[in-house]
Amino acid sequence: MASVDFKTYVDQACRAAEEFVNVYYTTMDNRRRLLSRLYMGTATLVWNGNAVSGQESLSEFFEMLPSSEFQINVVDCQPVHDEATPSQTTVLVVICGTVKFEGNKQRDFNQNFILTAQASPSNTVWKIASDCFRFQDWAS
């Protein structure tokens, strides 16, 4: 019984992750100005150890980033346990890939998101609750 439910949650998480990753990196590369809309108002981005909080700060941060070309190699996702986020369907998405920022060399990166489902009349909308990005080989 529990196992069957778990599998259902996993399938839901995988579909959400697949759709989200497509939307996120397309928006990041091509429609940068709309990117902050994917984040919850209370979301926090930790970008190579630098914390950015709040819609306005996120907009400024993404505006400041040079233009990008992301390539996704692997995506992993898990449903987050109810006990961690009560009454809020939540998914953990982990991405590994390469990115080239304008004026910089290509780099491998890891990024992980916590997405929460927002109720909507027509369909489920996933919003970013947290975002953590790190280059793989860029030590402090």
């Binding site: 970008w47 190579n48 150890g49 630098n50 914390a51 040079p66 920022f101 910089n104 280059f135 030590a139």
Partner: peptide, 9 residues
């Protein structure tokens, strides 16, 4: 143009 990395936050 890229923000400097931090060891931990």
């Amino acid at each position: 143009q890229l923000m400097k990395p931090r060891k931990a936050i």
